[in-house]
């Protein structure tokens, strides 16, 4: 109780700090799309439009008004959840993103969970037995994970498990056509199917997910394993580990309650970084596995100059990073009691 009030204040401070960041993100996503070359009015008016109809479109879209007025309109639309119309799909951008974001998140989160449950024990084992085969295995996996590009690993996995072994389903999206997609609750097929109690569909979705998630996991586990190993080595050589050993504490207590909890901080930092770049970098994986995520959506939109879609994508990703950083910082305060006092 004594320590909770400054920590609570630190948490609230951190939440308050997110507000200007969100405002900044909105301003930048607005200005960025305005600064891109090309005239949206021309695209929206269509191929056969003449000067007059382009001008008409411009007025209809409000693009003839000064920037501040446009910004007010944009923010007004945003507050109503309106991100504009996508040119290529013809649907509202908000709908498109709502359909595709869960697909990307499901893939990334699954990959990350896979990566963590392999990389962290691997790193811990490598740190406790430096120079042994576990340590060398860790080094090999890390090097391979970093140096193999995801599209290559993806294609290799498809070749082995789909083409040669035939145990994986065809890499065509989130669910084989023989299944019906589950009712939309969270947008995560695994969760939605489980909620419906439809285990058939659940297995189908899981089968589709395994290969792309493994591809992404191979890529993301490298930095996590490396950081876990380094952080554990640092923690294990600390003075307080010597104290714990001299007090006769058992190996597992020394390792987990003393060393591992102290090593967690840098690992969590790395995890946050890995998560943010995995969300952006999984576009290649999405392409290889025909995964209907927002990465491939954004690339397609960019290619055809679909500005509303790009703008929506930038905004959603930025907000996601803000939330992610917030979560990581809150995790810090949960792990390290010193944080609340260091925050100003």
């Amino acid at each position: 109780m004594l320590a909770s009030s400054p920590r609570l204040r630190a948490v609230l401070m951190r939440l308050a700090q997110a507000i200007p960041v969100v405002i900044g993100v909105v301003v930048i996503s607005f200005l960025l799309t305005r600064a891109l070359p090309g005239d949206p009015a021309v695209y929206f008016a269509g191929v056969a439009a003449d000067e007059a109809s382009i001008e008409q479109t411009r007025v209809a879209m409000g693009l003839d008004k000064p920037l501040p007025v446009q910004f007010v309109h944009y923010v007004g639309d945003l507050l109503q959840g309106d991100l504009g119309q996508s040119l290529s799909s013809g649907r509202p951008v908000a709908t498109d993103l709502a359909n595709r974001l869960p697909a990307s998140l499901e893939l990334t989160l699954t990959a990350l969970i896979l990566a963590v449950i392999t990389a962290v024990p691997l790193g811990v084992l490598a740190a406790t037995r430096p120079g042994t085969w576990v340590d060398h295995l860790c080094r090999v996996v890390v090097t391979a994970g970093v140096s193999l590009p995801t599209f290559f690993t993806g294609i290799l996995l498809i070749y082995i498990f789909y083409y040669l072994a035939g145990i994986a389903p065809s890499p065509l999206g989130r669910l084989d056509f023989i299944y019906l997609s589950p009712d939309h609750v969270t947008g995560f097929y695994l969760i939605d199917a489980a909620l419906m109690g439809d285990w058939e569909t659940w297995r189908g979705a899981a089968k589709q997910l395994v290969l792309p998630a493994a591809t992404l996991a191979l890529f993301t586990l490298a930095p996590i394993a490396r950081m876990t190993r380094a952080a554990m080595l640092t923690a294990l050589s600390s003075d307080f580990i010597r104290t714990a050993r001299a007090a006769g504490l058992s190996k597992s207590v020394v390792l987990y309650r003393y060393a591992f909890r102290n090593a967690l901080l840098p690992v969590v930092t790395t995890l946050g970084m890995v998560f943010s770049f995995a969300l952006g970098a999984n576009v290649l994986v999405e392409k290889v596995f025909a995964w209907p995520g927002i990465g491939s959506y954004a690339v397609e939109a960019l290619v055809v100059s679909d500005y509303a879609a790009v703008q929506g994508f930038v905004l959603v990703m930025a907000l996601l990073f803000v939330v992610l950083n917030l979560v990581i910082d809150l995790l810090y305060t949960a792990i390290d009691p010193r944080i609340g006092f260091e925050a100003r």
């Binding site: 010597r242 104290t243 010193r338």
Partner: peptide
């Protein structure tokens, strides 16, 4: 049992 120099570092900082 043992006691050490630099007592602050000799204790687990987050426990």
């Amino acid at each position: 049992s043992m006691i050490f120099q630099n007592p602050r570092a000799a204790l687990n900082p987050i426990r």
